[in-house]
């Protein structure tokens, strides 16, 4: 991930040694966590990815078998397609909505706290059983959405959750609907933009749109970047919503079989933790590539003050 080398950009020579010492002092808790808690299990999973590991008995080394098997597994390919679709459609939709609402809520209007809370509510409940139930009920064949459509004289609306061609769409919608988390992060970022910039621009008669383009977006770009990177990483690992809406099956007909859900089934339902580990590392490679591209491209649009 050479793109991250960009972090070291603009280095200065002064106080190099002092920064070294201070750097590691500030990093001490993180380093301890890395060594004691994080690295061991990560390396263990890397090792297990080269083994046959049925969980209830020890692992046996099988070399590249798991990795070769992945290329001949049509369900794995399908789960990749499902996951890519989710990432490519869901992430931009959610982020644009989150940014739009955050900017709207940042105008110092009346009832701000109320709206902010209301828009955040879905994120509070997003992973609960209750929401999965409601979702299934709303988008069921005889659910609320179809009742509404039928009253608008739509004949034979599809069973949104039951139809493999629309089931993924309902989960993407659920994802977009829980836009509260990136919205809050955007809001926090907007709070950091000094108001004097806007005041000055207003005096000069800049329109709201111009202000947004020339002040808000550039100054918010580190936060936009953060949300983009993290939402992509998160979306590639999407699990909970698919798990609860499909009852853990990834159905109908594997149409909501996300990569991580398939991985989980391999590991815990089929007791093939070696294969699941190999899948996990394939996912790391894929996410890693996306993240590296993100960092590389960020040079052209993310503005830091350092």
């Amino acid at each position: 991930m050479s793109a991250i080398g960009e972090l070291a950009h603009g280095e200065r020579q002064k106080d190099e040694s002092r920064d070294n010492k201070a750097g590691y002092i500030f990093l001490t808790p993180w380093l301890i966590g890395l060594v004691v808690i994080t690295i061991g299990p990560m390396l263990a999973s890397l090792y297990l990815s080269f083994t046959s590991y049925p969980l209830l008995a020890g692992p046996t080394w099988t070399g590249l078998t798991n990795y070769i098997r992945m290329f001949n597994d049509p369900r794995l390919l399908n789960s990749l397609v499902v996951t890519f679709t989710y990432v490519v459609v869901g992430v931009p939709l959610q982020l644009i909505l989150a940014l739009a609402i955050a900017v709207l809520l940042n105008t110092g209007m009346k009832g701000l706290a109320f709206y902010r809370s209301v828009f955040y509510l879905p994120s509070l409940m997003g992973s609960s059983v209750a929401i999965a139930l409601l979702w299934r009920q709303m988008f069921g064949t005889t659910g609320l959405v179809n009742q509404l459509l039928q009253s608008l004289v739509v004949e034979n609306p599809p069973g949104w959750i039951a139809d493999p061609s629309t089931a993924l769409g309902t989960i993407i919608l659920l994802h977009v609907w829980t836009f509260g988390s990136p919205m809050i992060i955007f809001l926090a970022g907007l709070r950091q933009i000094p108001t004097m910039y806007y005041e000055a621009a207003s005096v000069d008669g800049a329109s709201k749109w111009t202000q947004f383009r020339t002040i808000t977006l550039p100054l918010l770009s580190p936060i936009v970047f953060f949300n983009l990177v993290l939402q992509i990483i998160g979306a590639f690992q999407a699990f909970t919503q698919a798990f609860i809406v499909s009852g853990g099956t990834g159905g109908p007909a594997d149409s909501t079989m996300f990569f991580t859900l398939y991985l989980y089934q391999q590991g815990f339902t089929n007791f093939q933790m070696g294969y699941a580990s190999a899948m996990a590392w394939l996912l790391v490679i894929i996410i890693g590539i996306f993240t590296a591209i993100n960092f590389a491209v960020s040079k052209y649009w993310v503005f830091y003050d350092d």
Binding site: G23, Y24, L34, S45, L48, L55, Y264, A280, W281, T291
Partner: peptide, 26 residues
């Protein structure tokens, strides 16, 4: 802070975000 190994440590930190919990839990 500019310290030795910053980029690599930062990359490792991001890497820790990318593995699903299900293969780490055992």
């Amino acid at each position: 802070l500019k310290f030795k190994g910053r980029s690599i440590l930062f990359s490792i930190m991001l890497l820790t975000l990318m593995l699903p919990i299900h293969v780490l839990i055992v």
